[in-house]
């Protein structure tokens, strides 16, 4: 892997505690030039703390935190990043154009205002006061603020929360354009679909650690389960009786089966019912993979705690 050689931001064994709560427990993370890394994990997994470290908002208790080879608390490092945070109440009385000009003034060579507005799709909002915008429009303005400085690395923390489908699509296409320009993105999101659509690599966190890192396909492959759907006369009780069937349930007339060995189960299904129709076999989505991974991590952590006690 050439990741280490082009790493522009990294956490190495980062530890951060708040009183008795350990938010990060030896977190490792590397972001390469021009890639989109999705940071996933349930609430309280440590995503926000990891980002806060990389932005220089807080200091690690132990471990290394680097942004472009420097301490993120140095302003020179942060001149190369753009930021969209989950909840920032921007000055309500300032107009969108004024906010953009103000934020652009912090950067050495920002984008022209018109280009920023066009990229974020907020061209017609420039003269409006920020407080008068809808929630989705405010998110779009925050995206514009994040990209106005021509960043090499963009931090997007739950960027599409509160956006409608249309706004979300616009944001995704803006992100794709930025990546095409060579900008790297660190994305945290609750929408696994978003990670699936955009990410080169996915990093899953639980209990302050990275429990999986790899491509979206690698993450899916971690979970051996597949889903079978069909309409069949075979009774659900009979299907449940077969070995290899992890779970079976009826959704209307459609039977949903989860299994690790799809081929065998399909053979059984076809053998039992020649009239079977609408057969579908699917690999588990990112959502299932994610749920399974974090559940495993929960179990490990629970065992650890029992042992410790």
């Amino acid at each position: 892997m050439s990741l280490t050689t082009t790493s522009i931001a990294r956490l190495d064994g980062a530890i951060k505690t708040y009183g008795r709560l350990t938010a990060l427990d030896g977190a490792n993370l590397q972001i390469g030039r021009g890639e989109l890394l999705a940071l996933l994990g349930p609430n309280g997994a440590g995503k926000t703390t990891a980002i806060a470290l990389l932005l220089g908002l807080i200091r690690a208790d132990a471990g290394t935190v680097e942004l472009f080879g420097r301490d993120p608390q140095q302003i020179e490092a942060r001149r190369r990043i753009g930021v969209m945070l989950q909840n920032a109440v921007l000055p309500p009385t300032l107009r969108v154009g004024e906010l953009l000009r103000l934020t652009a003034s912090y950067y050495p060579s920002p984008r022209p205002l018109a280009e920023t507005a066009e990229l974020a799709g907020i061209g017609e909002l420039l003269k409006r006061p920020y407080a008068k915008l809808s929630g989705g429009q405010q998110r779009s303005v925050q995206l514009a603020l994040a990209l106005c400085g021509r960043p090499e690395l963009l931090f997007l923390d739950e960027p599409t929360v509160g956006m409608d489908v249309d706004a979300r699509q616009k944001l995704w296409s803006a992100i794709r354009r930025l990546i095409a320009e060579g900008c790297a993105v660190l994305l945290t999101t609750h929408y696994l679909e978003e990670a699936e659509v955009l990410a080169d690599r996915v990093c899953v966190m639980a209990h302050g650690r990275m429990i999986h890192e790899g491509t979206v396909d690698e993450l899916r492959a971690r979970v051996a389960l597949k889903r079978i759907r069909c309409v069949t006369g075979t009774s659900i009780e009979k299907v449940r009786g077969w070995p290899d069937v992890a779970e079976a349930r009826l959704d209307g007339e459609r039977l949903h089966i989860t299994t690790a060995d799809a081929e065998t189960v399909v053979r059984h299904l076809l053998g039992a019912d020649a009239q079977l129709r609408e057969l579908e076999v699917q690999r588990a989505g990112l959502a299932e993979a994610f749920t399974e991974l974090t559940r495993d991590a929960d179990e490990v952590s629970a065992t650890d705690q029992r042992e410790a006690a």
């Binding site: 908002l57 920032a88 921007l90 912090y106």
Partner: peptide, 17 residues
Amino acid sequence: ERDGGLLTFKRALPMPP
């Protein structure tokens, strides 16, 4: 502004301190 997150946002940006 600390409460609303504006200060956090500004600290993350390269605003001269």
